[in-house]
Simulated assay, not measured.
Amino acid sequence: MKLLGRTVLVTGASSGIGEAVARAAHARGATVLLVARGETKLKALTAELGLRAHHYTCDVGELDAVAELAEAIRTDGHEVDVLVNSAGSGRWVSIEDAEPGELVAMAKVPYLAALLTTRAFVTGMLARRAGWIVTVNSGVSRGVWPGAVGYASARWALRGLDLALKADLRGSGVGATEIVLGTVSTSYFANNPDSEDKLPKIAKIVPTVTPEQVADAICKAVERKRGTVIMPWQMKFVSSQGQHFPRMNHFMLWLTGARRKKR
């Protein structure tokens, strides 16, 4: 699916991967609909991109907010051809150190956000028998390390959503891509300084990629209709180990991961 002339909706578009995807899709000739909770950065990015850029403030983890978003986009005359679910949040924390409300928030964004946003816009895609849904996921969906229970389980839910969509939409004209990433040079660790220490030492074999590299990979995946993208290539090794040697993969991530503090 060529992005030229298409309408691409990007969640989490105010920074990081979402912002980079919006820029890359716009550069390829797409109309971009920028969605995030913070209005200031969205306005600035929309003004910078100029024509074919529109912004909508929305907490995509909330059911009513997503319904209002969909209605606003329809009222403005847009039909979403490509949905990029890149909104994400949550710190890496052990189960007993996470407040119940924090666990709920990590389940809402990214998992419920991707589920609700997909539901809001997939109907139009199905009616046109054309469309694409992208799920941005973490390497923790292929190998789980200690100290990130809420974060990891939400990313495994995202993986399940992508697989379920591929099965449900087969033959409909609507496709789905999951992009699985190692460390990306966003502000995540700066915003969650206690999380970086929990990254397993073995993860150092996987080099950091930039949001721009991720955005380029996402655009190419949509254009080439690729079902799964794992990057960088070293992450493919981690994914393969998790699939074929799950016990070994689990042990190595535990062995080189964060240790539970004695109480």
Rank of each mutant, 00 (worst) to 15 (best):
V82E: 00
E96S: 09
R6S: 12
I133R: 01
T46A: 15
H78M: 02
T123W: 08
G77R: 04
G50H: 09
M106P: 05
Y188V: 07
L255A: 13
P232V: 10
G227H: 13
F189A: 01
Y56E: 04
A203T: 13
G77S: 04
S239C: 07
L69P: 01
T177W: 04
G175H: 14
N85A: 05
L49E: 04
A190P: 10
K220T: 15
R263A: 14
C219G: 11
F245R: 13
I218A: 03
G124D: 09
I179K: 08
A258S: 11
L4C: 12
W92R: 12
I73Q: 03
Y56V: 05
R155E: 10
H250S: 14
R155V: 01
G175R: 15
W145F: 15
K236C: 11
A154C: 01
K225S: 15
K201Y: 03
M235N: 04
L181D: 05
G182P: 07
A105D: 15
E178S: 11
V109P: 06
F245Y: 14
L33R: 03
V84P: 00
V8A: 05
W92G: 09
L49H: 02
A67K: 14
V93Y: 03
G257I: 02
P232N: 07
L69I: 00
N191I: 01
E68I: 06
V134N: 04
E178Y: 00
G61F: 01
A130W: 11
I205M: 15
K198C: 01
V229H: 04
P100T: 03
G5K: 07
R91P: 13
V144W: 02
E48T: 10
P193G: 04
H244T: 14
D59P: 05
E96I: 09
L255V: 06
G227W: 09
Q234A: 11
Q234G: 05
Q243A: 15
D97K: 12
S153Q: 08
E71P: 01
R74M: 04
K198P: 00
R74W: 06
L158K: 01
A70C: 07
R263K: 12
G124N: 06
G61T: 00
L34D: 04
L253F: 15
T228C: 10
E68W: 00
T210F: 09
V32G: 06
E178W: 00
S239N: 08
V140Y: 05
A190H: 12
Q213Y: 02
V21W: 09
Q243T: 15
H54K: 14
A105F: 10
